[in-house]
Design a protein around this nucleic acid. Structure first.
Lengths: 124, 124
DNA sequence: TTTCATGTAACTATAGATGTTACGATTCGC
DNA sequence: GCGAATCGTAACATCTATAGTTACATGAAA
């Protein structure tokens, strides 16, 4: 599939697609072929690639929208708040990443197939 | 304490302080006095006000930086991804909010007092 | 009545994400 | 080989949300 086609599916620009897919390529999850009839191909086993691995491949983007302003503030009040929250954030992050690790691309593919069949049936 | 003074502590503008403190005022957690010798006062029992309550008072700002792009997408792939992630996010959010509920302002005050005493001792 | 506060609307600035343009490098079909 | 198609990437532009600022009305106390 070309970046152009993916961009249309995602409602975005081919270059934006290449930027993100490039990270997946570096992680060995997809292959890109240049030139005529080129484009993107999955290069990994759907059963073994989890969402956790995708998150890692994409550079472990920040999970939380809220959090410490500074890691090691001088302000003692800020230190107390940080200390109180750090454990909670760490626990929640660990839980989320564990759930990500549970879901493989194959799981998504199966769920998609189910939905696809359902939609077809509903259209008849 | 005036918005001016709080702004200096927080490294920000008095108006920004008023904006946020205004939400806490609406929730009954602080009082504001206008005019000469006015400013902000805590209006709640430190032992019973939790970080969870603060989060609620501030309008339950989004916890996660990543998440669904659309709630109910037409795209079946997006639907599958959403379905796979929703549970995980819900669990992590519940855990985090539960931890928030465990921490009271009094807890923070005690931790602050401990740090304050320590710093004083270290300076002698 | 003057001074010092908050309350709030309107505007501006900033940073990060996203989108766009441009062009070089590569591959395939002819 | 030549030309069309495609990725790779740098540079630039645009958008958006947050934060910051200015301005002024309102209220309280000396």
């Amino acid at each position: 599939m070309t970046s152009e086609a993916l961009g249309q599916c995602l409602g975005t620009n081919p270059v934006v697609v290449r930027r993100t897919m490039g990270l997946l390529r570096e992680a060995g999850l997809v292959r890109a072929a240049r030139g005529h009839a080129g484009g993107w191909q999955i290069a990994a086993d759907l059963e073994t690639v989890s969402l956790r691995r995708l998150h890692a491949a994409l550079g472990e983007p920040a999970i939380f929208a809220i959090g410490n302003r500074h890691e090691t503030p001088d302000c003692l009040v800020e230190q107390s708040v940080n200390a109180a929250l750090e454990g909670a954030f760490a626990e929640a992050e660990a839980l989320l990443l564990a759930r990500f690790a549970d879901v493989t691309l194959a799981d998504l593919a199966r769920d998609f197939a189910r939905r696809h069949a359902q939609r077809r049936a509903a259209q008849e």
